[in-house]
Design a binder for these strands. Structure first.
Lengths: 135, 135
DNA sequence: GTAAAAGTTGACGTTAACGTAAAGGGGACG
DNA sequence: CGTCCCCTTTACGTTAACGTCAACTTTTAC
């Protein structure tokens, strides 16, 4: 497994996750990932890879990088105070509700789409065999 | 119901769907909707409203306007030939598979997120009552 | 009849999310 | 020692999806 290695270079990351160096640097600039430095060179840890996976997943769902950054903050939970933790939990619950709503809506969209396809299928079938059994 | 009226002006559309005139004109320019003209003015039909709903829905799922336009084409199915219809159906099936994959992945994301929240909940609980029953 | 409201067409501005090109450091190799 | 190769920073370019503003016509209200 690629992920079992502790650290990776930028090029290894790019090949593993199909992104460009520019994209990784951009994500670092936006504080979505935090590669460590060996001199000047970036080295990506397991944590960065986990974050990158979540970033790419979030993008597929249509989240902006800023929204994703806020979601990643919820995953972090560093040395927060009790009240902060509770606040984090509350926000997380809202995000969760958002995601579940989105899943439901996606379900509706899929059902609608299937209906259209069924209708289309009938059109094709009826047009394919206009005659019953003649000839 | 708003949608029961046959045609609507641009302003009515904007209020009904919470978009700006610019957005509707932009969608027309991109051939996503086709308002009819009364002189110079645009009038939006039931068909445009149905399309707009799909556009806004698609956007929430992270589709680009170009992807949405192609999806809308699948909904249209005008005066196509038999072979074209079949091709349309095939493409539709791929799109459907894409959407179902996205739904599954969203499900995974939700489960992962819930796990994190459960863990967070435990941290909060254990930190709230560090003592058993003393005092 | 005229003034406000609503609509139109350009055309330039803006933001997000990178792409791309220039200029240069550092170490491995023949 | 020179020359790749990989990496770096800096900086300008690009595309999508509109926002915004100017200049004008048309309709509606009084």
């Amino acid at each position: 497994m690629i992920d079992s290695d502790e650290i990776m270079t930028i090029r290894q990351m790019c090949e593993a996750y199909d992104v460009t160096p520019r994209t990784l640097r951009f994500y670092e600039a936006k504080e979505l990932i935090f590669p460590v430095r060996e001199g000047q060179k970036r080295l990506f840890t397991k944590r960065d890879r986990a974050r990158l996976k979540l970033i790419l997943r979030g993008k597929r769902f249509g989240f902006s990088l800023e929204e994703i950054r806020q979601l990643l903050e919820l995953y972090h939970v560093g040395d927060q105070q009790q009240t902060q933790l509770q606040a984090t939990y509350d926000v997380a619950q809202e995000r969760l509700a958002d995601m579940e709503r989105q899943r439901e809506e996606l379900g509706e969209a899929i059902e609608d789409f299937k209906e259209q396809m069924d209708w289309l299928h009938k059109v094709i079938a009826s047009q394919a065999e206009p005659r019953d059994a003649a000839e």
